[in-house]
Nucleic acid binder design. Structure first.
Lengths: 216, 216
DNA sequence: GTCTATAACTCGATAGAC
DNA sequence: GTCTATCGAGTTATAGAC
């Protein structure tokens, strides 16, 4: 049992890494087996088909979102707006660590998978939605810092849009500049949303807002 | 000669469509041959390998950028800022036409291709750069409308970032909403860049900027 | 649960006639 | 330039022993 669980997670982990660096289609079963030090009998004992392995990978991404992507940033940073840019910095580190060859694993698969793999597509959109939800929580926590009314739902989606587009361009140009530029301009947009010039002075803020508690 | 040229372009066109809808790796030679009504002998007469066919496809995208993507919008719209959003509307039409299954063909390939295909990657970045250049021209044409100093190079890159991210999310969610939201917030950012409220008066503005009408 | 062996098929690419 | 025939490797997946 310990062995079996071990093999299963080794397969998922190997598939996850290979799907990330090469894509789903371009990764062969044999390659996964070699990386996981397993045999085809084991793989097909746990997963009926290659696509089921993909589904397992996408589930782990959902599971990893909070503990790996969000929570470490939230533990380090308390300001809700800075938390957002802290998350974005996490993707920057990923790009730099991989010399701009790898960015967001979900974005890769989002564009690769076609109509046929609709279960996988649903998991991808669920991953995106969970990410947006984390950002939206930050925006809600900072709601009183915005000058006018802000649709935090839409703004969170815009943050995701920027991140995914920026990762794509950083990868394409094999340089971090495109990513940094996008985040810089997103920050500029935030500044303009939060500060409408001389019109409104938010003057004193003696009592710092209490942080809303997140689930999980 | 007429036949040969015909066959060659049929192969490129078939490959272009299949790469767009299925990706490069997932598209097989046999599938391309069937769609182009050609035989393998013909394909390998024109292209030494599958990757060379990809390069030809990417070249056609570069050739098509101005006549197909940019110029039709510029012919219809004269205002430089509206030209930018006109181009973005072209991608919206593409998404709607394909029920959000296809967006930007370059973006697809950008995330799919790995380290190995470095010639193809260079062509992809050239496509992106040419696109940015068109947008930057619009921004330069509207330079006096921006409140402060604006780095049109960076802003053009941000427009591309937004478009690519928005196309990805529209495809993932199989709905145009994510795209529309991204464009709407990009428009809001533009408005804030062009009108800085009461802070700074760019001296006399005898001709008040006309409030642009937004579709939708 | 894991092993080996392999079926059944598709892949990109080539050879040689015409 | 286009045709048919096919190579060899690689693909996903299965069978059956252990």
């Amino acid at each position: 049992m310990t062995t079996s669980t071990d093999t299963k997670s080794r397969l998922i982990e190997a598939a996850r890494e290979l799907f990330l660096s090469q894509g789903y289609t371009a990764t062969g079963i044999a390659q996964i087996l070699k990386a996981a030090k397993a045999r085809s009998g084991s793989l097909y004992y746990f997963f009926p088909a290659k696509e089921d392995l993909l589904l397992a990978v996408l589930e782990t991404y959902k599971d990893m979102l909070w503990p790996v992507v969000i929570q470490p940033v939230f533990d380090r940073v308390s300001d809700p707006i800075e938390r957002i840019f802290g998350v974005l910095d996490g993707y920057r580190r990923m790009l730099q660590y991989t010399e701009c060859s790898q960015g967001c694993p979900i974005g890769n698969l989002a564009l690769e998978l076609g109509e046929s793999q609709h279960v996988a597509r649903r998991l991808i959109s669920e991953n995106f939605t969970a990410w947006r939800e984390a950002i939206r929580q930050c925006l809600d926590d900072a709601a009183d810092r915005f000058a006018g009314d802000v649709d935090t739902e839409q703004l969170a989606l815009f943050v995701l849009t920027t991140m995914e587009g920026a990762v794509m361009l950083a990868r394409s140009y094999r340089g971090i500049e495109a990513y940094d530029t996008a985040v810089k301009l997103l920050r500029d947009y935030f500044d303009r949303l939060m500060d409408d010039g001389t019109k409104r002075t938010r003057s004193q803020r003696p009592t710092r807002r209490v942080k809303r508690k997140r689930r999980n």
